[in-house]
Computed example of a mutant assay.
Amino acid sequence: MGNDVNGLHHVGHIVRDLNQASELYRRLGFTVPAPAFPVLPRVPGGPAEPFGVANTHVYFPGNFIELVAVIEDPGRMPGEARPIPLQVPDDQLPGLMAAIRATAASIASFLHRFQGVHIVIADTPDIDRVAARLTAAGVGHGGVHAIQRPVETSAGTTMEPVRYLEISEPDLPPGRVPEGRIGFAENTPLGVLEDRQRTGHPNGATGLVECVLCVADPALPELERRFGTYFGQGAAGQVARFDQAGVTVVAASALASLLPGKRPATLPAFVAYAVSVRDLTATERLLHDNDVPITRTGRGEVFVPADAALGTAVVFRQED
């Protein structure tokens, strides 16, 4: 595989109520920008309307956490949400509408399973190399796509170019694997990274460092094989770590050794993610002051249980 994976690019936490999720993340000590939602005419010449999904991002210098919700009622958007007008030629409007509908339907289907993390995207410096490697290994994917998405910077809202691909497994909708959405995105441009360096979080968080997937014990060997093809071979066992991608896979019988008291809503499921912090003691104090329930992982790290964090456990880890 070489060095075509640099850790996590982002995870997507799918929620029912974006206002509730933003408030929770602020209580967890993260800086959360106002959500954004696309607006565009549903027919050429028609009025621009909210459509698809609304989201916001908790940014770190090299990656981020996405909070995303489906726009179910265009007349009731989150109070602080910002509209992002999409400009598209009339002849391209039907295709864009179809793509947005498909994305919203996919997000809604994940939410039907459970509220929590369903999207895990690894970071790569060379998306074309990843695409070629996956193709050679017989891994299905939708090819490399190039998009631009709005990002809040100190200079205002800018459009960030992103090149990405999503893995597709047979007998599932495009861009889907049994665990949710897994893919790769190319490194964020340097200027955006420099701006993110100035984004501070009251809890001292510095980066997204790990995502944990729980699977039924009999499924673990096949999943190790599949993830090894995606990310490079990891350490095998009841807990398999794919360190280059920042992904850990744990058998259901071993989950309590990592996250005491955790019970996944279903299997397979992404059950937790971890962020690094500058001072774990200070982070723990902030969570306590904000009346956030916390416990300890099997390694003694602080984590907020999933039932207090909208379906996914949030682990805080002292940075090296």
Rank of each mutant, 00 (worst) to 15 (best):
V11Y: 01
I14L: 04
V15I: 02
D17W: 00
N19I: 02
E23Q: 06
T31M: 05
T31V: 11
A34M: 07
F37K: 00
V39M: 01
G45C: 03
G46Y: 03
G46C: 10
G46S: 08
P47F: 01
A48T: 09
E49R: 04
P50R: 02
G52R: 00
A54W: 01
N55L: 03
N55I: 01
H57W: 13
V58Y: 08
F64S: 13
V70Y: 01
I71C: 05
G79K: 08
R82F: 01
Q92K: 15
M97L: 15
A99G: 14
I100T: 09
A102W: 12
H112E: 09
H118R: 15
V120D: 09
D123Y: 07
R133A: 02
R133H: 06
L134D: 05
G142R: 06
G143S: 04
S154V: 09
A155H: 15
T158H: 15
E160A: 13
P170R: 02
D171I: 08
G191T: 15
T199W: 04
P202E: 00
C211H: 15
L213I: 12
V215L: 11
A216I: 04
L223E: 08
R226K: 06
G232H: 01
A235K: 01
A236L: 05
Q238P: 09
V239P: 04
D243L: 11
V247A: 09
T248G: 06
A251H: 01
A252D: 14
A256Q: 12
L259S: 11
P260A: 08
A265G: 10
L267W: 02
Y273H: 15
S276F: 02
L280T: 10
T283F: 11
D291V: 08
V292W: 00
E301D: 10
F303Q: 07
A309K: 02
Q318I: 04
E319M: 10
D320R: 15
